[in-house]
Design a binder for these strands. Sequence first.
DNA 1: AATGTTTTCTAAACCGGTAAAGTCCCAATC
DNA 2: GATTGGGACTTTACCGGTTTAGAAAACATT
Lengths: 344, 344
Amino acid sequence: MTAQPASRVTIKDVAARAGVSKGAVSLAFNHKPGLSEATRDRIFRAARELGWAPNLTARTLAGSRVDVVGLAICRPARMLGLEPFYMEFVSGVESVLTEHSCSLLLRLVRTVEEEAGLQETWWRGRQIGGSILVDFRADDPRVAVARRLGIPVVAVGHPSLTGGLTSVWTDDATAVTEAVRYLAALGHRRVARVGGAAALGHTSIRTAAFDEAAGALALAGAWQVATDFSGDAGARATRSLLTAAAADRPTAIVYDNDIMAVAGLAVAAEMGLRVPEDVSLLAWDDSQLCRLTHPTLSAMSHDVHGFGAEVARTLFGVIMGDGAGSHPVPTPVLTPRGSTAPPR
Amino acid sequence: MTAQPASRVTIKDVAARAGVSKGAVSLAFNHKPGLSEATRDRIFRAARELGWAPNLTARTLAGSRVDVVGLAICRPARMLGLEPFYMEFVSGVESVLTEHSCSLLLRLVRTVEEEAGLQETWWRGRQIGGSILVDFRADDPRVAVARRLGIPVVAVGHPSLTGGLTSVWTDDATAVTEAVRYLAALGHRRVARVGGAAALGHTSIRTAAFDEAAGALALAGAWQVATDFSGDAGARATRSLLTAAAADRPTAIVYDNDIMAVAGLAVAAEMGLRVPEDVSLLAWDDSQLCRLTHPTLSAMSHDVHGFGAEVARTLFGVIMGDGAGSHPVPTPVLTPRGSTAPPR
DNA sequence: AATGTTTTCTAAACCGGTAAAGTCCCAATC
DNA sequence: GATTGGGACTTTACCGGTTTAGAAAACATT
C-alpha cells in the first residue's frame, strides 16, 4: 500500500508563511501559552490560507494523543449483519467520539483470543488511544491483556465478568426477572426463554436470573435454550418448544434479542398458532424492528444508542485518568405491545 | 487523550539484541533482500523474545504504507441500526482487509459535504491509505475531492454516478426490470414500488428502470413512492398504497430494502389482507430477515458480503496502481418465496 | 543603570520507523 | 595484481509533528 505523493502542506510551510518557527505553529494549534495574540492570529491565518491541518500520524508519533478508539466485535459475520444492536451501539459510540474529533477503528474477529492479540497489536503500534471491549465471557483473556499493557479500556458487561476493569453495564438479571414476573402476572405458568450464546457472560447471568425467577414464582414449566443469536436458531428453538402438546408447551417465550423474536413470530404463524392468544412472545433490545411486525412485539426495551454514548463517555474518562469503576446504565424496561397477553 | 507510558519496545531494542542496526531490522521485517538467512533469523528471534512488532504510526509517517481504509456512512443513525445491508457489507469488506492486516476506519456522518471534508482530513492527515465511498448522489462532491487529492478510492455505485472513479456496482436497472417482468408474468397488472431516498443515485436508476419496464409491459397501474429506507416509512407507504379500493390498488409491491418489505408485510396483516393472495410483496437485498417472516419474503437477492469483499479487493487494486475502471458484480437475482403469487 | 522577571519565540532533540546512499569484504574477471 | 561486482550491512537523512532548553526582548524592581 503505497501512498500517492499529492503535494502535502506541512507545518513547515505554515511556519514559513507566518514567519515563525515550527514550534510556534505547534504551540498555536495546541492552544498552549507562550505566544502573543498577534502571532497566534498570523499563524492561524497562514494555516487557513494553505488549508493546513496537523498530521495526526506525526502528532501521534511525537507522543501526545491518539485520536482513535478501537472496537473489535467477535461474532460470525453472517450473524452480525442481522444484529441491529451493534450498528445502533456503534452509532451511539460515534456520536460521542465525533464531539472529540476521534475516530473508531472497527474490526470483526473470530475468537476472543484473536481479539486479545489484536488489542495488543493496536496498542503497541499506537494505533489506538483506548478500546471498547464487548461480549465478555468467563475468564476472558482480554482482561489480562488490558491490565498488563495498561490499555485504557471500557468493558461492556457486568462487573462480575470484567475482572475489575472499568465497566458499563445494564442490569440483565433484574430485567429478566421483570420479564418473567410480567408474564406470570398475566397468568402464564409455563414460560420459556430462547437465550443467546452460552459462552457469553451476560447469557449466563440471564440464565441464572431466569431460573431464579421461575423458581421464586413456582412456575409449572420453565424451559431455557441456548442459541447463537441468529434468526434461524431462534426459529428452530421456537419450533421445538411449540411442537409439544398444547397442554405441555410454553404459553410465553422470552427471546434474548429481537431478531429471534421476529423469527419466533413467523414460526408461530407457520404452525397455525395465534400470537398472543395461543402464545405470547417477548423480545429483547427493542430495535425498530419490534414495531414493524404484526402483531407488534412486546420487548424489554433499552436505549442502545444512549448505551453506546455512555460507553464512549466513560472511555474518555478512563483515558483522562479518572472515572474508573462501574457505571450501570438504566435497566431495560418492559414495553408491552401486541405480542403479549394472558394465556387462553 | 494522553497515552500511558507502558515501557515500549522499539526497533532499537531489537537491533541491539540481535547485534545489528535498525536498518537491518527494518529490512528483515519488510522482507526485503540484502540480509543473510542467519541474520534474518537472529532478528526475528530477538523480536519474538522482546515481543516487538513494528509501530504502524512510525511506519506510516516514514512514508511507506498506511494500513487503514476509510469508510464513512451517511445516513441518520437511527436508520442505520436497522439496515442489515451495511453490517453485512462491512463484514465483507473486513474479510478481505484482514487478509492484508488492514483495518477499517468507520465514521457515521450527517451529510455528503461533511463526508467530503472528512475524507480530505483523513487523507491529508495520512490516516488512511484509501477509501470506500458509498451512497452516491447526483453531482457528488466526493468525486472532486478524491480526484483533486488523488485519494485511492473505490466508488460503490453505477459508473454514471461516480464520475469516472473506479467503481464497483450492481446492475440495479436490470434487476428492477426483472422484478417487474416477474410480477407481470405472474399476472399482476397494477404494481407499485416503495423506493429508497430520492437523493440517492441508485434510487433514481431504479425509479427510471421501473417506469421503463412498466411502460414496456403496458401495465395498467404503476406507482412509485420515495422513502427514507426506514421501516416506518415503508409501513406508511404501504398503508397509503393499500387503502385504495380493491379494484384500484396495486396487487404487488416491490421494496427497495428488506426492512421496508417486512414492515409492508405487517401492514398487510394489520389491514386484513393476505399475502400473497391479496397482495404480493417483493423485498430487496435479501438478508436473513426475509426467511424469518411468515410468509417468507420473495426478494431480489444478492451476496452483500461478497459485494463488500469485491469492493475491498478492488480498492487494493487501486492502491497498488492498477485495476481502475468499472467492476460490475453479479446482478441481484429473483428469489421467489412465499410472498409472491398470481393475483386473485 | 544594573539586575531580576516575564513573555515570546527559536533551535534542536526526539518519536520509531523507512529508504537511499555509503562502507566493507570477498570472489570473480581481465 | 588491479578492477569490477555483488552481497551484507551500516549510516544518515528524512517523515511531520511535539517538547524542552535556551536566547532575545520587554518590563518591573531597586
